[in-house]
């Protein structure tokens, strides 16, 4: 049961907004509900009364990509972003690599030049969205419940709730997980995978699908390099072996080291939209 509105929708993802007490939107697979100050997907239920008698087994060729629905929705999102000239970036990492801190530093860095909005993905809590909200930019939290990744439907519903400006940056912070989110296209222009020097340098070899699908890898927490046994060159080499088109940046979101290059990367992308 939903603990905010008491409805029976216990499964599926929920959108929440910091500073808007009670606001939440359930994202139903095929049916959802609507109450007071929040809205829901208009679900549809249909039944077909098939009375035919089909006793003989027959084989039907389907030849359909399993993720077709997600991929089609992702393409709709991509078209929506392109039409509004929004640069959508999908941020991926394991939990604790510093994605939210990186966004906290990125937003003020672009202030006055490029509008930024954020979609935060986590299983539970609005903690990350609260941190972004404190910076005064539009943010929406997607709580995936038991889900381990964001999908295109969640993003489609989330961006409807955001007042996205034209020629702006949308940062989609995926659920902290280096496995599952790799499979789900959200409609992003680029994937940014973040790793930190407190993790193993063999992360790209352990999670090759994620690194293969990424466009940019950011190595974060470089200020901690003197205190940890992390071989930056080896990590970079592993990442390039898995994806030789991968771009690479080294930053410390905490100290600010390398953030100028990150800003240059963002600006060059934003100027092209």
């Amino acid at each position: 049961m939903c603990d905010t509105c008491g409805c029976s929708s216990g499964e599926g993802a929920v959108l929440r907004k910091p500073g808007s007490e009670g606001y939440h939107v359930h994202i139903g697979e095929d049916a959802a509900h609507q109450h007071h100050h929040h809205e829901h997907d208009g679900g549809h239920g249909h039944s077909h009364g098939h009375e035919h008698e089909h006793r003989e087994a027959r084989k039907v060729e389907v030849e359909q990509d399993v993720l077709l629905k997600n991929n089609l929705l992702a393409e709709r999102n991509r078209g929506w972003f392109e039409a509004r000239r929004v640069l959508a970036l999908n941020f991926l990492s394991s939990p604790g690599s510093g994605k939210t801190t990186l966004l906290e530093k990125t937003i003020p860095m672009l202030a006055g030049e490029w509008p930024v909005a954020v979609v935060e993905g986590d299983q539970q809590t609005t903690n990350d969205a609260e941190r972004i909200h404190a910076l005064g930019v539009p943010v929406i939290q997607v709580n995936t419940g038991t889900g381990c990744h964001l999908d295109a439907l969640m993003v489609q519903r989330a961006i409807r709730e955001l007042d996205l400006k034209g020629r702006s940056l949308l940062c989609i912070e995926n659920v902290g997980n280096l496995v599952c989110p790799a499979m789900f296209d959200l409609g992003e222009a680029a994937r940014v995978v973040v790793i930190s020097v407190t993790e193993g340098e063999d992360k790209p070899l352990k999670y090759p699908t994620m690194f293969h699908s990424a466009d940019l890898c950011i190595l974060n927490k470089t200020d901690l390099l003197p205190y940890v046994d992390f071989d930056v060159e080896r990590c970079r080499e592993y990442a390039m072996q898995v994806n030789h088109h991968l771009e690479w940046l080294e930053v410390s979101a905490r100290s600010g080291e390398g953030l100028d290059r990150w800003k240059a990367w963002l600006t060059s992308r934003l100027e092209k939209i």
């Binding site: 089909h54 003989e56 027959r58 039907v60 030849e63 990509d65 399993v66 293969h212 072996q241 030789h244």
Partner: peptide
């Protein structure tokens, strides 16, 4: 060299179904 472009092996598709 590690500069390989994947040409197949990423498929995930429903090929056919047998119905009654």
């Amino acid at each position: 060299r590690f500069r390989v472009r994947v040409t197949s092996g990423e498929e995930l598709a429903v090929k056919s179904i047998t119905i009654e």
